[in-house]
Simulated assay, not measured.
Amino acid sequence: MKNLKMTLGMILGTAVFLTSCDDDDKDATPSMVSVYTTNNSDGNINIYISGSSMTMTTLTTSSTAADGAYFDGTSVYQVSRSKNSIEGFAVTADASLGGVLDVSASLTSTSDMTSPRELAVNGDMYVVADNADADGNADTKDGRLFVYQKSGNNFTLRNTITTDIKLWGITFIGNDLYAVVDTENKLAVYTNFLSNMSSTSLSASKTVAIEGLVRTHGLTYDSMTGTMVLTDIAAASDPENDGGIHIINDFMSKFNGVASGGTIALSDQIRISGSNTKLGNPVDVAYDGQAGVLYIAEAGNGGGRILAFSNIGSGGNLTPSMNQSLAAASSVYLYKK
């Protein structure tokens, strides 16, 4: 535990310094950087918080496997794969003290899903990507997006969208929902996604390929820097060293400049990959654009890890600036205050 705290404290502490200090604001109070992780090993939530000091807290939940995570400032949410629902847990001041806390869900959705993965939030709307076969035909590529509305301490399933692509990672950019095309190297967008109020089938508004990427899983968008980051698990059968990260700066310009069905060239990206990276099956990513720090949920290498990369400008075969074991790591979410 001591080594974990020291290593994680250094990387999160660096992020805090870089995001809170500049030439015109030397006396600013450091930001609090929190990293929330879930896993498919024990279903617990690990929280790493850095402010004036760094602490690690484990929230012990009744789930045994979980995926997408989100924190709204007062509660942390995870998608329970063992319960096929969204769970929300009120985070009290105790979470900043470190150690292990037993928690009970303060709100849950109904158990509607089959194989839930990533969670994307837009206001009071919570969208979960489900990668189970939607039509019972393994030869067709499809998935479902479950749209929940949060009101007070309740989740209500508003509608379900059936897609003609396999799903995993999703994220909102404004009102548009971006989704990775699982088993492929493609990225899709559903424009004005939440305007689809009824349960229906829906095709993507646009789909582009990402050159150099084999099989994408996780994605995140940093609005401050205009950067999209996607993870590449490559061959799922090789969990150790064949994965990578693709960074696309000035993303909207590059995405809009390619016709649907076209390709974003590798020359318009930065790729991190190689034996030093510990990237085998990176399934999720969070990006602190101000600090230039990437956080990765690595599901395969060494049985699972949480990684961070802090010198990403040129990409390549980088050594992680933080490397900690987390069995079957499944998602990572960054919150700054």
Rank of each mutant, 00 (worst) to 15 (best):
G68C: 08
A69I: 12
A69V: 12
D72W: 09
G73T: 07
G73P: 03
T74V: 04
T74K: 14
S75G: 09
V76Y: 02
Y77I: 07
Y77R: 05
V79R: 01
V79L: 03
V79E: 02
V79Q: 00
V79N: 01
V79D: 00
S80V: 06
S80M: 06
S82I: 05
N84E: 06
E87M: 13
F89D: 01
A95H: 04
A95C: 10
S96E: 12
L97E: 11
G99I: 14
V100A: 11
L101V: 12
L101K: 12
D102V: 14
S104N: 15
S104G: 15
L107P: 02
T108N: 14
T108D: 11
T110Q: 09
D112H: 04
D112N: 14
M113R: 04
M113Y: 05
R117E: 08
A120K: 02
V121N: 03
N122P: 02
D124V: 06
D124K: 10
M125V: 12
V127M: 08
V127R: 00
V127Y: 02
D130G: 02
N131P: 01
A132F: 08
A132W: 00
A134G: 01
G136T: 09
G136Q: 09
N137I: 13
A138G: 05
A138R: 15
D139N: 15
T140V: 11
T140Y: 04
K141M: 07
K141E: 08
D142A: 04
G143Y: 00
L145P: 00
V147T: 07
V147L: 03
Y148M: 03
Q149S: 05
K150S: 00
K150A: 02
G152M: 12
N153D: 15
N153K: 14
N153R: 10
N154D: 15
F155H: 00
L157Y: 00
L157Q: 07
N159H: 10
T160K: 03
I161C: 03
T162W: 04
T163N: 03
T163G: 05
T163H: 03
T163S: 15
D164L: 01
I165M: 15
I165F: 07
K166H: 15
L167S: 06
W168S: 05
I170T: 06
T171W: 04
T171D: 11
T171N: 15
I173F: 07
L177H: 01
A179D: 03
A179E: 00
V180G: 01
V180S: 05
V181C: 15
T183K: 12
T183L: 11
E184I: 01
N185I: 08
L187M: 06
A188D: 06
V189N: 06
Y190I: 03
Y190W: 07
F193K: 06
L194M: 08
N196P: 03
N196C: 08
M197N: 14
S198Y: 07
S199E: 12
S201G: 12
L202I: 10
L202R: 13
A204N: 13
